[in-house]
């Protein structure tokens, strides 16, 4: 594909177009991904999550600047929720990263959930692959840790950063429990505010309760991202985590698991779509259901015959 070739050479517009194709689930996206798949697997994927107001975007901005100083190419996927009513969204995370706009080694893309469960994690997944193939060393996925679909997105990262701040009311409770369990590095941002130490202690307690039996130390770091304080330490922790994953073989293991999940999910999605197109759209499915109602057939036999037809 011409677009793929351009993207691989670093053309921003081509990269952007490919991500749009993936987001809109156009057929060409699959063609492109086939072509790009062999080139993936080099980037380190960093998930960054935390409640609204925790300063995630500012944190991302500073971490990226530090990585740029070290000569790394970085892409950022900023994910925001869409309105469940109109599907529209205002994606404002770019604002806090606007001086990265003109850096040739940085690509920023805002994605919305488009009111669909699952749809977003797939689009994000594809976007990560495209950016990985295009040679970005680090790919950041930034999202509010609220909905399940966002937890799913974050789970696809190699290193997961959980950001919180003092004074969010119930402090730790503001972080979704599911996120706490999967976090690799914890950050108490705006640590110049009152109560920062208390948040650290609470986090230590929570993590102690959830302690997994692995060798990673789950560091808790204090930062004031707006003043660039503690940023180098976070970057070092990410690099240390990356090395840990490499050394222990966990990275290879996780990536294998992820491929498994991806394939299984795609199979389910494709079958659902196939069944939809084959039976539901033309009304034949309703006729089959009528038969069930009249007890002329049973659901189990019907499922078998649909499946037999699908995998033929």
């Amino acid at each position: 594909m011409e677009l793929v070739q351009k993207a691989l050479k670093g053309n921003r517009r081509a990269i952007a177009r490919l991500i749009s194709l993936a987001e809109n689930e156009e057929k060409e996206a699959v063609t492109a991904l086939r072509e790009m798949f062999p080139l993936t697997g080099k980037a380190h994927i960093v998930g960054i999550t935390g409640p609204p107001g925790s300063g995630k975007s500012t944190m991302t901005d500073k971490l990226v600047k530090e990585l740029r100083k070290r000569g790394k190419k970085v892409a950022i996927l900023a994910v925001d929720p869409a309105s469940p009513f109109t599907g529209g969204a205002i994606l404002g995370d770019r604002v806090r990263m606007s001086d990265l706009n003109l850096d040739e080694g940085v690509y920023i893309r805002s994605l919305s959930t488009r009111g669909k469960l699952g749809g977003l994690s797939k689009a994000t997944h594809y976007a990560v692959k495209i950016l990985d193939a295009c040679g970005f060393d680090y790919i950041f996925i930034e999202t509010v840790g609220v909905g399940q679909s966002e937890v799913d997105i974050i789970k696809t990262a190699d290193s997961i950063l959980v950001v919180t701040v003092p004074g969010l009311g119930d402090d730790i409770q503001a972080i979704k429990a599911g996120i706490l369990e999967i976090g690799d590095i914890f950050i108490v941002n705006k640590a110049d505010r009152d109560g920062a130490n208390r948040v650290v202690i609470e986090l230590e307690m929570m993590l102690g309760l959830n302690a997994e039996k692995d060798e990673w130390d789950h560091p808790i770091l204090m930062t004031v991202a707006s003043e660039n304080k503690g940023i180098i330490e976070v970057v070092e922790a990410v690099i240390r985590h990356k090395e840990y994953l490499d050394k222990t073989g966990l990275l290879a293991e996780r990536r294998r698991e992820r491929l498994e999940t991806e394939v299984l999910e795609l199979v389910v999605q494709n079958m659902t779509r196939y069944v939809n197109e084959k039976f539901v759209k033309d009304g034949s499915f309703q006729e089959e259901v009528d038969k069930l109602v009249r007890k002329e057939n049973d659901p189990y036999t019907l499922v078998q015959s649909i499946l037999a037809d699908t995998v033929k």
Binding site: T58, G92, R96, S226
Partner: peptide, 10 residues
């Protein structure tokens, strides 16, 4: 002093 970065909440 550095420069101020705005908060944009729409």
């Amino acid at each position: 002093f550095g420069e101020y970065r705005p908060v944009e909440i729409l």
